[in-house]
């Protein structure tokens, strides 16, 4: 009798032990709520915006189910589910000049969502060809062709080149006399213009990129420090992107652009005296739209808003 009681107690203790062990093997190493991604950035294409972000620390969580992207600002769009490999992600079907708000959240399999991280951004015109369907080029000072870049010809709504006689149209100018290789604000270049160039300001010089698609921002372009300046291209040995702003004819507010300057074993291509510098341009046609609004900060990162 005593033996059977002891056996029964042993069985109960064993059962309790296994029960405890069973509980411990469920995936309880998950955090209670998903953590938001960080560092949301954007860049513009024609009719689309590319966003990228720093992955959420919840990506390693067993409950991680991906991200949810909500877009507001234009025609209503359904939320987009993204996997962790869809970073960067291109949002297509957008309208140039409209400021959209992109809101990204981490999602768990139990449908809980992180706090959103947001950025507001606009698609913008993208030019790889000029108004003649040819590469966008301006020529060295000695050439008979134009040394001035018109980044947006309001008549054709495309880029073109311009000669010194039409300085008022110049957005950027190339100056190659006296062994110099300068690109910059036309009013600072040593030309005897036929018409006076307007004010063109340049902010940052970005290096180490292969295309405009690689130039992401997290804040509006007007947050940069702009001034009229010339860039000594001889000091650089890779592609450049210049952040530029100018006034369209009759406008007092700025129009913003990113200008990609191609480097191909040098900036000057072709044969003297018609050597040229080649460009790609991202242009925000809407006056006063610096591509974006300043990104919102993530508040209460671990807030579960399910």
């Amino acid at each position: 009798m005593k033996k059977s009681i002891l056996t029964a107690i042993a069985i109960m203790i064993t059962a309790l032990f296994f029960n405890a062990c069973d509980n411990s093997t469920t995936p309880t190493n998950s955090q209670n709520s998903p953590v938001a991604p960080t560092n949301l950035q954007a860049t513009s294409q024609d009719g689309s915006v590319i966003i990228k972000w720093t992955a959420s620390t919840s990506e390693t969580d067993p409950l991680f189910a991906g991200y949810v992207l909500n877009i507001t600002g234009g025609t209503p769009m359904a939320p987009i589910s993204l996997t962790k490999v869809q970073n960067p992600y291109t949002v297509s079907g957008l309208e140039d000049g409209v400021v959209y708000t992109f809101s990204l959240q981490t999602k768990f399999t139990n449908d809980s969502l992180s706090a959103p991280i947001t950025i507001s951004w606009s698609p913008a015109l993208r030019f790889t060809q000029n108004e003649n369907d040819a590469p966008i080029r301006i020529y060295e000072t000695a050439s008979s062709f134009g040394s001035g870049l018109v980044i947006f010809n309001s008549n054709t709504k495309l880029p073109s080149s311009a000669k010194v006689s039409d300085g008022a149209s110049w957005t950027l100018g190339l100056y190659t006399s006296n062994s110099q290789l300068l690109l910059g604000s036309p009013s600072l270049l040593n030309y005897n213009y036929g018409t006076t160039p307007g004010t063109v300001e340049i902010a940052d010089v970005i290096t180490g990129v292969n295309s405009l698609d690689e130039v992401f921002d997290s804040q509006a372009l007007n947050a940069h420090n702009f001034s009229q300046k010339t860039i000594d291209l001889s000091q650089y040995s890779s592609n450049l992107v210049l952040i530029v702003r100018h006034h369209q004819s009759g406008q007092t507010d700025w129009n913003y652009a990113k200008v990609f300057v191609e480097y191909n074993n040098g900036f000057l291509q072709g044969t003297s005296p018609n050597r040229y510098v080649e460009f790609n341009i991202s242009y925000q046609e809407i006056t006063g739209n610096p591509y974006a609004k300043i990104a919102d900060k993530v508040i209460n990162l671990n807030k579960n808003i399910k």
């Binding site: 040819a134 008979s144 062709f145 134009g146 311009a162 000669k163 072709g270 018609n274």
Partner: peptide, 8 residues
């Protein structure tokens, strides 16, 4: 033609 460009 090696080069064709507008000259305006």
């Amino acid at each position: 033609a090696d080069t064709i460009e507008a000259m305006e």
